[in-house]
Write a protein that binds this DNA or RNA. Structure first.
Lengths: 217, 217
DNA sequence: GTCTATACACCGATAGAC
DNA sequence: GTCTATCGGTGTATAGAC
């Protein structure tokens, strides 16, 4: 990887983090990279292509780092703890912000949408794998769809990040509330056998977790 | 309210919905409104001020509509159903998209951030009121912080909307997963007395719902 | 209140020298 | 591969005629 290309990729991620999608431009990227503006088009043809390459690199690096962490988790509660650390780390690196800006831009721009879809599915698949492994045996298994749940977690992270950028105090309290709710998982994970059986029966009795074609009441 | 001002306010909301924060400009708004571009600055001084006024109007109208709906809810399950309808309606009107674009822009622009903060707190306060009323008596009361929870719900809606704009199928499955999880509320709301007591006791026993200063294990 | 015309900065992208 | 110079277009905002 040439030095210029590398500098441009790094500067693109940084610009997206700090100036947002509305402030992203070839000139802004080139200035930050300390590189001539024309070189963007020589190396990457268009600004959009550069953004795609830069976000892909960022996501692959982050997800790769957390693959090993996820593998260590032996319970849903442990996973929740890893998730907390992940959020803090990614927050600090500015990667959640990068992703939220990419997603906002992707609502109107097809090329950015493709980049955002790649980022989201890469994260979601990684999360799904570990959730599926740890959900086995829990009463939650009857309710939760691991794939959809993983996507929902990713989506919520994005929303929380945006909230925190707008109103840090409120965003923080939203995150705290979700963590408290995550404790529900701990409780259900660790219920005595009697209560666990009762809960499991109650869940089965409701329509929850059944396909739409089933009409058991 | 003069006709021109009204047209500009409506066009601003529409432009934000359809062109996003990166495509928002005085020219784009004026063209959509069928109004001379210079009139934006005559009536609203700056584009940012116009955006603030437009989003405030949109949010006040939407929240006002739902205040009456929320008042009708008599159980958490009913609230969940209203929430589903709300999501569909706001989605169709494009108001969630408007809000997500406003939040994305607000990460870098202080004036947009103020508008986004107003929108978020207006929604959150309305949701908090009804959640607080309906949570009384549920075992969830011991865990959940209504204020934080309301903000978390708002944030998650934003994230889900962005996800759906990027990958409609995946976004839909994320929403479905959250709704299934919402069924957990139904189950806990409607548990037999024995299981309810067991669950309540288990929740109390865990550190959940206690302040940080308490160190009961 | 509404219009035209315009100032000035920045945008993506390209041509062509080196 | 890297540079300067430049094209046509768009951005906010204002001056001044009507």
């Amino acid at each position: 990887m040439s030095d210029t290309k590398d500098k441009l990729l790094a500067a693109t991620a940084d610009t997206l983090r700090e100036a947002g999608i509305a402030g992203l431009s070839a000139r802004a990227i080139a200035t930050r990279a300390g590189v001539n503006q024309a070189l963007i088009f020589y190396h990457f043809t268009t600004v959009a292509d550069l953004v795609v390459a830069a976000t892909k690199r960022t996501v692959d690096e982050s997800v790769g780092y957390y693959r090993a962490e996820f593998a260590k988790a032996c319970s849903l509660v442990e996973l929740l703890q890893i998730g907390r650390g992940l959020h803090e780390r990614e927050q600090e690196l500015g990667n959640v912000r990068l992703m939220s800006q990419l997603m906002a831009g992707g609502q109107q721009d097809a090329i950015l949408a493709e980049a955002a879809a790649y980022a989201l599915s890469t994260w979601s698949e990684e999360i799904e794998t570990v959730v599926r492994r740890l959900l086995a045996g829990s009463p939650l298994e009857l309710i939760a769809d691991p794939r959809g749940l993983a996507k929902a977690v990713s989506a919520s992270f994005i929303g929380l990040e945006l909230y925190e950028g707008i109103d840090p105090v409120a965003g923080r309290s939203a995150l705290d509330a979700l963590e408290q709710l995550g404790m529900l998982v701990e409780v259900m994970d660790d219920l005595g056998p009697v209560a666990r059986r009762a809960l499991r029966a109650r869940i089965k009795r409701s329509k929850v977790g059944l396909g739409k074609s089933d009409t058991v009441v």
